[in-house]
Amino acid sequence: MDPRSEVLLRQVDYLQGPLLLAGLPADELLGQLAQAHGWSWHAGQQQWLEQHYPGRCSFATTPPAMTWQSAVLFLPKARDLADYLLDCLAASLPHGGQLLVVGEKRGGIERIGKRLLAYGQPRKLDSARHCQLWLAEITQAPAMPVLDDLAEPFTLDIDGAPLQVISLPGVFSHGRLDRGTALLLEHLHLLPAGHLLDFGCGAGILGAFLKRRYPDSRVTLLDVDAFALASSRLTLAANNLQAELIAGDGIHAAPRELAAIISNPPFHLGVHTHYQASETLLREARQHLRPGGELRLVANSFLRYPPLIESHLGPCQTLAEADGFRIYRACRP
């Protein structure tokens, strides 16, 4: 079981009655709390929870419209996302309702006391497993935040025309164009015609660009995060573009017979570093590409991706290198 869940269960007396668990991990916590309901924005965790506890967890960017006595937030790393989630939960609770926050010490939980002052008097309930658990009883609730009001739009000049990007809290490179994506955008010419996939779409920059440059191609955007998909949806709408969006935890959720997979693949999750999604993409891209289909991606120069690409897909070409990033290209034979 996740150590945060273990710390939470040490204080089970605070977890009675209708309870909302926000950002809960994929573990047995729901099975220990009969009146609890989950709220997840991670497609992989949601899939696991739905398989084990059908109907007891919602996948969304807003909390379930139900009545709660208390709520628990598993604190995310991104502060802007944490602020939005805290306001959502506090607004969902009645006066005197209990808002609990649990998180790892290196994930910023030690700062949460000051943040909880906005809702009531905070106190630390527990500290164990390198985690802390905090509680505030709601004495002053905020209005329910409107997610779209927190968007940070910005404009890119690409191919001599503006591309509007709508970035939401918690989405990768919130409110700005990251250097890796900027480099990849310069090297997306001469893609094969057909179905194009933006893997790990984030705010939808690559997907929107692909649909605009290759208007006759079918374009799909895939991400594990509900906030990224919501952001991509807004970006597409802002540019009057149509594309398919898929919530999925990795390349296995992608369509087959793709003409090209384009990606600035993620390798960070929370306070830990993870390469699994990116490495799985490189190992399994062949299964999702048609013969002659192409993988084109950007990656940090220190990541040893070429040997992995060549062992599972084919010869790997380096198209460009700048600012600590490289653009790789490989085709399925």
Rank of each mutant, 00 (worst) to 15 (best):
L319Q: 02
A34M: 09
T273A: 14
I246M: 08
C331E: 09
A60E: 06
D148W: 09
L258N: 09
A118P: 07
L236A: 12
A208H: 01
T280L: 10
G113W: 10
Q46D: 09
S278I: 05
P192G: 05
L99K: 15
E137A: 09
F74H: 11
G314M: 07
G38V: 02
I251Y: 04
V146N: 08
L73N: 11
V219M: 13
R176I: 00
T61L: 02
D223P: 03
D149C: 00
L163A: 07
Q69A: 00
D149F: 12
A161Q: 15
A203H: 10
M144V: 05
H288G: 06
L185R: 12
S70W: 12
G55Y: 13
Q164N: 07
P54F: 13
T139F: 00
S263M: 06
L269N: 12
L185Q: 13
F199Y: 15
A65Q: 15
A91P: 02
A43R: 04
T220Q: 04
G170K: 13
L183E: 04
A141S: 14
G17W: 15
S70K: 13
M66T: 01
G293R: 10
G96E: 03
L9P: 13
A128R: 15
Y14W: 15
I138A: 06
W134Q: 07
D159G: 03
P63D: 03
Y53F: 08
R233W: 04
T280P: 11
G97H: 07
A193K: 13
L303E: 10
D223T: 08
A128N: 15
V72R: 07
G270P: 02
E152C: 09
G113D: 15
F74N: 09
K77I: 00
D27N: 01
S311D: 14
D216F: 02
T67C: 08
V101T: 03
W134A: 10
